[in-house]
Design a protein around this nucleic acid. Structure first.
Lengths: 154, 154
DNA sequence: GGTCGATAGTATGACGCCATACAGTATGTC
DNA sequence: GACATACTGTATGGCGTCATACTATCGACC
């Protein structure tokens, strides 16, 4: 099996490294495909998320998308500059912004989705549904172990 | 199945995001455990790799560890400053350095390996060998698809 | 109703990695 | 041998993310 060497290799060539390398490649591939739209992966995915979830505060968005609040703020900044997203005040809490799509943002989401569908099909080539399911399952288990380690050690 | 939502969720919550989040957590966990040694993951893994593979040029190291040459250079810089690694000239090629461990570096590798063994055991908790094997296999397949995409689009 | 601890968003500085451009060196060709 | 081409390592600037510290605001308790 071609992956056997991955598992029997010393730690530094192992699954952990493969995960990180794959993550970098995923980002590159999405960035490449979204470049025509003037977006990167973080921006495109936030647009699509807001369309689905509706207007949310920045902290909620950060939590759900797995980013820090500062990082989320800067993604929103750049989308706002391009007029794809707007910050609306929340009448009940003057600390927060409710981030929502503009009309231009809604149009952009369609472009993003089109490209995403194509890219995902290419990524899935030769990988069965069960394989993908298993991948997610094991990654989640790994993530849980990692969360425990990070929490325990403070 | 608890991961089902991952796969049926919109693209932005899917396997790709999980991969990237897991990659970040892996880095954090290793960085945390190596912090006592004054090392981060990149530095520790390079030390261990050099011990295994012997003295190599920076470009070879970069290729095998999946980094760019510039990034590899700066990892070596910081290890060299701490006296864990040394750059020796290659008598046959004045362009290159042969990067090798110092005596202090060899001692450090033992510390690194100890901690790595412990950490890997924790990471593997509840994940069978077949699961890990499958994980690597699917990640490699995904990586190949990604490499094709990145190459095709230039 | 004032005060105090929590929370939202922002500013700043750091890190790891990348891509590009550059100077020095090697190698193959005429 | 001279020259063009390829390759090594480094410098620089950019990107995305994080951690920390700060201000403004909320909510609860005296």
């Amino acid at each position: 099996m071609s992956t056997e060497h991955e598992l029997d290799a010393p730690p530094w060539l192992r699954v952990e490294s493969t995960i990180m390398a794959t993550a970098r490649a995923v980002r590159q591939a999405y960035d490449l495909r979204f470049a025509e739209l003037g977006l990167n992966l973080s921006e495109a995915s936030l647009l699509a998320y807001v369309e689905e979830a509706g207007a949310l505060t920045q902290t909620r968005l950060a939590e759900r998308r797995g980013l820090g609040r500062a990082a989320m703020g800067s993604v929103i900044d750049s989308l706002e500059k391009r007029g794809l997203v707007e910050r609306n005040p929340d009448p009940d809490d003057r600390r927060v912004w409710l981030v929502d799509l503009t009309a231009a943002g809604k149009e952009m989401v369609e472009q993003v989705t089109e490209r995403d569908v194509v890219l995902r099909k290419e990524l899935r080539a030769g990988i069965s549904r069960e394989d993908r399911s298993k991948l997610a399952e094991v990654l989640v288990a790994l993530g849980n172990n990692l969360a425990g380690i990070l929490a325990d050690d403070e």
